[in-house]
Design a protein around this nucleic acid. Sequence first.
DNA 1: CGCCAGGCTTCTA
DNA 2: TAGAAGCATGGC
Length: 277
Amino acid sequence: MRTIFQKDGVHLENAEYFELAATLDCGQAFRWGRDADGGWSGVALGRRLTLRQTENSVLLCGVDEEEYRAVWQDYFDLGRDYGAVNRALSADPRLRPACEYGRGIRILRQEPWETLCSFILSQNNNIPRIKGIIDRLCRRFGEEHDGWFTFPDAGRLAGCSPQELDCLRAGFRARYLLDAAQKVAGGDVPLESMRTWSPDQARQRLMTVHGVGPKVADCTMLFGLGFIEAFPQDVWIRRVMARDFGGALPESALPYAGIAQQYLFYYERDRAGEART
DNA sequence: CGCCAGGCTTCTA
DNA sequence: TAGAAGCATGGC
């Protein structure tokens, strides 16, 4: 992939392993959406960004070299060779179809706090409604910048009463959100430092939050804390693992289990969607 | 109306 | 200690 800095933004050419639709709509992030003109816009890391896809390139609109290197290169995990990972995972024939289908997916390195909240809200819920709750959360408690809103930090929510969260219509998950906010803001769950902890330690600490079980903890680790070997198992993944893998991924896939997980999730979910229609 | 949605907590045997 | 019920809300 070639990186070219121009006035209109950063062009990533030969982006065979970076497809916006697959990356931004595969259920790992909830604040990206497609614009009327086909571009993708969203808010991450306290910034608003629009991207465009052409046949073999991605454009980060209006981004200069400094912002690219400081923010987006890491957010889109552009330092990782997804071609190599994809080929390694494809060595197992049971993984190959999902690897081909999800080829352009990249695992986003999102803010841990936003990731924790997002996946607390995801439990027993569907993706459109998760997006709606997060949108209301940002509009009500985030900071406004020119018509869009940042994700509110933990300290902002930690001081809220349960009643103040009623406007989110998050249901029983609201009190989980509050407990997470209090534990993160209070230092019991020090998300940033947990990046360097062992996976077991990080997972155990995340699960001290009320409403955070194995699945939400693993999603937070994979999408927020940079643990690429984390392997969140939701109903879809459990079904595939039981059906095709005898319950567990092959040894060779374990170092990139998180990427394999996202390929499998995207593939299975889309196949089910097509079968239904 | 009933069922389901990127689960988790709580109750029960 | 496994397994089922209950949980808020909204789309279908």
